[in-house]
Amino acid sequence: MEPRRLVFIGVGGQGNLLASRLLGETALSAGIPAVVSEIHGMAQRGGIVESAVLMGDISSPIVSKGEADVLIGFEPAETLRALPKCNSDTVVITNTRPLPPFTVSIGQGSYPAVDQTLNLLQSKVKRVIALDGNALAEEAGNPLSLNMVMLGALIASGTIPISEEKMKETISSSTKEAFLESNLKAFDLGFKSVQ
């Protein structure tokens, strides 16, 4: 299979590591070779968390600058910060709900307006899918299910050969009973927001 390089970017606590791991599990169960790379440790303390999933005929576990096929951003300013990963053919899927860093509170730098961020993204890459992931997660009944919303949008984008059913199987088998319904609903809401 032609390699697909996906970059997940988020802020500590948003759950992008789980999203990339579940995607890796799904690829494996669908018979697609996949490697997932993660950053653990100090970088996770409220900082930026990046993970990557590389699928198909490729053995490198990370994505270089300009080489992401898909960028999935869990926070709009972080999506923008990760733009160097993109080229003009990249598909960007971004949450639109800001989570300003504490540096803004203590007057170091200002947070970019979301519509300006989206316009910039749109002017640079092939396609931008923007959704208020937090609103959909809340609608699903679990504010922590943002990662499921984003996975739903990713699968619906048609950028990777993973079906809705396969992805849901993995979510079902790896989610605790108490969160299963809301997680699946969050996935569906993310999925539908793209169609």
């Binding site: 900082g47 300009g66 080229n87 860093p101 947070y111 300006q116 910039l120």
Partner: peptide, 22 residues
Amino acid sequence: SPTEIVDLSDLPELPGRPPNLC
């Protein structure tokens, strides 16, 4: 010919997000 990285010249300056005590 290497893949071209998107033009980054007009990106606004973004506020830092260093790791922080919880």
